[in-house]
Every structure is written in C-alpha cells, then in structure tokens.
Write a protein that binds this DNA or RNA. Structure first.
Lengths: 194, 194
DNA sequence: AGAGGGCGTTAACCTGGGTTAAGCTTTTTT
DNA sequence: AAAAAAGCTTAACCCAGGTTAACGCCCTCT
C-alpha cells in the first residue's frame, strides 16, 4: 500500500481508529513527479503539503543574481511545502521540484481543515511535527551563524548520511551556503591533506 | 491583570470558556527577571516555555571562540525558550537572559501536558504558534543564505522597528550575523553617502 | 562623584569564500 | 551514436566581512 509509510509516521504520535484512518486516507491524493518537474513554483499560492513516499524533492529559492539556495531536501518519510504561502495563502517565494523521479501524497489545505474538525487528534500530530521542524531550523540557523563552511559540511554529512550518496555536490553546496566551486576546492584540500 | 496579554493572544486562535480560562491561568507562574539575569543556561534541561509580558529577553548561543549569536529577541507578546531541549528533555545549547528588567509567565512542560489532555483546544493553539514560527525561521534562513549584510540589516529594521530603538547595536549585529565593528562601519558608510 | 566596564567608532591589515573562465567527464536527450 | 546539457575541477584574481587595537563616551555601580 502506498500510504503505509505515512500511517507508520502518524502512529508514532497519535492512535487512530480504523474508521479515522479510512477517513484520513480518503482525503489523500497520490502523485508521481518526474525528475526536474516542479511541484510548486514561486508566485503560486500553496494549496497542499506533500509527503514524500519515494524519490527525493527539494525546496529552494532563487536570489536576484540567479543563485539557488536550498531550504530543504525531502527523501521518503518527509513533508515538504512552502509553509509561509500555505499558512497565509499568499504567493510563495520558493520552488519545489524533484531531484529524482518521485512519488508524493498530497494533503490539501481545504481537506486538512476538514480533518482537524473531524479528527482533532490531528491537531496534535501536526503540532508535534511543526515543533520538531522548528527546533531543527533553529539549530540550523545557529549553525549557519556560528560555523565555518567546513564544519557546516561535516554537520550535513553527519545529519543526512543517506543524502550524501544521492545528491549532486552542487545541491549540497546550495544547502550549506557556499558556491559549488568552493565546496569542490574544500573537499579536495581535505583529502589531499592526508 | 498580568495574564491579559497572553489571553488576548490565545483568543486570536481559539475560544476558551470561562472555566477553561480559569484552569489555564491556574497553571501559570509569574516571574520577574532583572537585566542580564539568566532564565535558561546552556546545559540545563528546559522545563518551561516563557511568555514575555514586559521588558525584552533574548536567546543566543556562544560559539567556541566566545562569540554570541542571537537566535531570537522576545519583546512583550512573544514566547521564548530552548525548543530543542524542551522537546527532547536533553541539555540545551542556548542561553536566555533579559536585555532589560522583564516580566515573564512560565508554562511548565508537566503542566502543558496536563493542559493538552484537559483542554485539547490548546493543541490547536500551539500548533498554529509553531507553524508560524517555523515559517518565520525558514524565511530567515533563506535570507541569511541569499542576502548580503546590508540587506539583512534593512530587513531586520523593517520587520522589528520597535526593537531597533531598544537594542544595543552589538545585539543586532549578533542577530544578523556580522561583527559589531562591521555593522558600525556599514551604518556610517550608509549615512555618509548622502 | 569617581571609577570601571560596556558600547560605539575608526583604521590598518587579513582571509574565507566568491567570481570568472576554461577544460574535462558524465549523464541525458534525440 | 552524436550532440547537448549538467556536473566537477582547477586556477588566478577579487572582495565582503573579520581581526586587532586604540580611543572616547556613557552608563551604572559604589
């Protein structure tokens, strides 16, 4: 079943009856996304959050010089979306696309609101999710303010070992906040040192 | 009443009965903090979140070279705490202290858990709070990755005009991620240009 | 009221990381 | 199978922002 991973994740934090589970599943939409295809585009108003079942997505912004900055990678088991646009229903500033051919489950805002009133337990689930994400972003911000590029890279490797294999180097550079050229230089200096 | 500001904030997102309100208030603890006094210290395990009623607090980390990096300022109406330590009940990495003589309301984790089971509406309230905070930190991260120091400063001024008056320059420097010396240089160049 | 410690400023010098540009390799598309 | 596009590397040069240090001002204690 395609919803299994999501249901497992939910079961870690709240217990659903069979009925509630069925209702929840009825709200979900399935979608396949090919590599490099957009799930969300700057200027869109976000109508859904996406739960990744297979593949890997990323959210990023493009600055006025055309450079990309990665906010998040989302391998299977992760949620991704333009949170600000989703909450305020304003045009978003992010792009979301697939790094590999991927499969996601979409939960639309209108359905989520129905879900909250029908099964209030989900307030708890998404509260916990948001709080954990919040703590993670706070930590990353502090890292970015206080650590040099090399240590940010090492942290990234430690935190997301599975991603290292899977991502092109330039994506990692855009996440930790350096140019691809500098990351390349840095890595080769590190190995040369031995 | 000292709880008014907090109750107003809550009323923006959920409606409480008189009874629920009374119960909620019974859980709160009041505390005064003098300028430069700590509310939380690195290594502590966070037992509470604090809602600021008067004055101004800040949360920050100290890196291995002894430099401070500000995660958040909290003027009246804001919550502050070491979220990661609070959630995982692990030793924290932040410091929280008062920038001015301040008053806060403490909500302890044990009481918050009781509150969630007694008045589940609060799951919703804190979900909304966490989601908004999350979107804010995501935005700040992207800013830090994509904008030069001057624009980060301008953004700060636009976003928190009331804080500019109130904060010493070096605190702002530690928030936007530059040295006090550089911020001073930057500001004087900007005004000299006219 | 005086003294000591923050705080802001300036200036000379330094460096982590950016820029540009070219060449090579691998992957994707046709 | 060829062409095009994306990715990685290297190297020379550059700059935003850091470092160090010295000086003056203004709080805030006592």
């Amino acid at each position: 079943m395609k919803h299994e991973l999501l249901l497992q994740n939910i079961a870690k934090h709240i217990n659903l009856t069979g009925e509630e589970e069925t209702y929840f599943i009825s709200l979900l939409q399935h979608k396949k996304i090919k590599r490099r295809q957009y799930l969300f585009h700057e200027g869109d108003i976000s109508k859904f959050q996406a739960f990744v079942v297979d593949g890997c997505l990323r959210s990023y912004s493009i600055d006025k010089n055309g450079f990309e900055h990665v906010l998040q990678f989302a391998p299977p088991g992760w949620w991704i979306g333009d949170m600000k646009s989703f909450l305020k229903q304003q045009p978003g500033t992010l792009y979301i696309d697939a790094i590999e051919d991927s499969e996601v489950i979409l939960l639309f805002k209108s359905d989520l609101e129905k879900l909250y009133s029908t099964v209030p337990k989900f307030e708890r689930f998404f509260r916990i999710l948001a709080e954990n994400a919040l703590a993670t972003y706070q930590h990353r911000l502090i890292n970015n303010l206080s650590l040099p590029a090399k240590e940010r890279y090492e942290n990234f490797c430690r935190l997301y070992p599975s991603l290292i294999q899977r991502l092109p180097q330039k994506q990692i550079a855009a996440y930790i906040g350096v140019t691809p050229e500098f990351l390349s230089k840095m890595l080769n200096q590190a190995t040369a040192k031995k």
